[in-house]
Design a protein around this nucleic acid. Sequence first.
DNA 1: GGGAATCTTGCAATCGTTTGCAAATGATCC
DNA 2: GGATCATTTGCAAACGATTGCAAGATTCCC
Lengths: 343, 343
Amino acid sequence: MAAGEDRTTRSTVRTITDLARLAGVSPGTVSRALAGKSLVNTRTREKIEALAREHGFRPNQMASGLRRQKTGVIGVVIPLGHDTRQQISDSFFMTLLGFLADELTTHGYDLMLRRVVPGDDADWLDRFIGSGMIDGVIVIGQSDQFERIEEVADGYRSMVVWGNHQEGQRHCVVGTDNRLGGRLAAERLIAGGARRIAFVGDTGPMEFAARFAGAQDVAVRMGLPEVLPLATHLSPDRASEEIAGHLARHGRQIDGIFAATDTLAALCLTQLRAQGLRVPDDVKLVGFDDLPIARQTIPPLTTVRQDIAAGARGLVDLLLRRLGGETTESLVLPPELVVRETA
Amino acid sequence: MAAGEDRTTRSTVRTITDLARLAGVSPGTVSRALAGKSLVNTRTREKIEALAREHGFRPNQMASGLRRQKTGVIGVVIPLGHDTRQQISDSFFMTLLGFLADELTTHGYDLMLRRVVPGDDADWLDRFIGSGMIDGVIVIGQSDQFERIEEVADGYRSMVVWGNHQEGQRHCVVGTDNRLGGRLAAERLIAGGARRIAFVGDTGPMEFAARFAGAQDVAVRMGLPEVLPLATHLSPDRASEEIAGHLARHGRQIDGIFAATDTLAALCLTQLRAQGLRVPDDVKLVGFDDLPIARQTIPPLTTVRQDIAAGARGLVDLLLRRLGGETTESLVLPPELVVRETA
DNA sequence: GGGAATCTTGCAATCGTTTGCAAATGATCC
DNA sequence: GGATCATTTGCAAACGATTGCAAGATTCCC
């Protein structure tokens, strides 16, 4: 059986030198043959390739990486805000990660994943970059680390960040136009008849702040009362109670809710129902992200869609161009209102 | 500013040799000092550490890995069945991945993520292992690759797999007792009065097959008709139609549904409602996993809970012990019935 | 057949860190 | 002060693959 053979012989031919001995050539030639360079004779190349296949030989990536000064690995780092457990169940980041993995694989790169709690060490990003293990890094979410990222960007080119774009920033970012998304949401609520709008979610993180600001833009422009910020944490268990509290206090005064994420919107739906408020009749509701859950709530969520797959493609594309020496602009993706039944 | 200083000098002190020159010692001494070995004089060690900090020096992991023959990286690979897009939105795997990342980080390991489509290359696992980039590998989900994994396990010790345990298998696996979970689900359905039970989901993958078998066990033991398998894909869009079709055909003949995952259960809920069937009055429904979504459906799902965090801990713990040379048994985790309102 | 031009190959240095061994330094004791 | 012993250090050889350079082998042309 081929597999068995594989295993017995694998121990004997682990290095390019072993293979060279078998093929009766020098290690250099083997290296060139396997790299597919044109400098080696077709016959020898074929012989070497055959031997390599037969013995299941794979060149050691560490050694290769060391010598060539590139590893074929892209680092992906998720900084977790103060709220440590924050994104663990956040399917948005996880979905993005899935697409990133696919996209990087397609381009022949491996993905090294790291989750860090910036509060614990200020050095989180430098450490990752300086490790020598990665050719470039994708930061998923600016969290509260905007300044740190800016500083790093000044001295390190091979980085792209998922997040919000701000006028004049120095790091290359890919992300949805959150402010526009906020406007779309508020416009929809108002078009449906809402006059007194609340924003459910933490306005601390930049992305959320921009969504909130967008909604505010519209309220002001229309001469409506200001949008009421109702702060929550992101983890479902805490948010659930918090939302219940907010609604108990303000539920009867508002007729429109813009939730910072679909996850929060789903919780709002549950709590609204618990408090006897009908959606969309008494209160209209718009979410953000268009995660799978948005289709599965009852009634299904009207929400602002982020194109996650396009985001992943953008991140990888820009990073690869930066690795190639290009200077790249940031990429701002347009959000899209998806109308279902809650607004 | 310290950060600025960092950046200007970084270029000048990239290697351990640079640092050695600065400190006036040999590279070997620097290496030992930074490794915290007791062989170096406290004073020199402190001096070196100070210099390293000052210049933001980090030893190159590639070189270190090459020399020490270990990388500090654990590979995590997700084999995707024929249904390529299968798990992309599957929050179960993504959640497990999140916990794995935390757990590995805690133990000082980095995580290299790879998603593969085994159909495309039979070599997927060997290639990953043979790359020399990882000290060990965690395979998430056996998919349809049970045999391939068995073969690899014969020649490679540093591997642990998430999946279903089968009598006499040779690879070390961590997973929930799916069959028992199936039994719990069926027992609950029957205790609530169900007599004619359907299983929604693909019975191809081992885990699902075991869940189905568990339900069947109970049906047979109780003298009820056999459990009716209603096959679906995993991706929500396709599954949705399929479930609608199944229900149109069999909806009136069944009074209990055991869904292979919570995601599918949520879809069932929507489709049942669309067809005018009430849950739990007309049809009882039990899911599997206890993902966050299980709490957010209306009514909330009764489901069989898998302890994902414990699973991640188990995977990492066993793998680390294997790296240390121990021989480890598989770990089968007990599922737990979580009663909410659908059954 | 001789010489130039073109292909192939081997040699050896290199990537940056670790580590066995031996030399150097310092401490200790009589 | 000298012999003994324990600490610290430096030296140089690894780890495994890549690559500039130069030598050896072929081919080609007149």
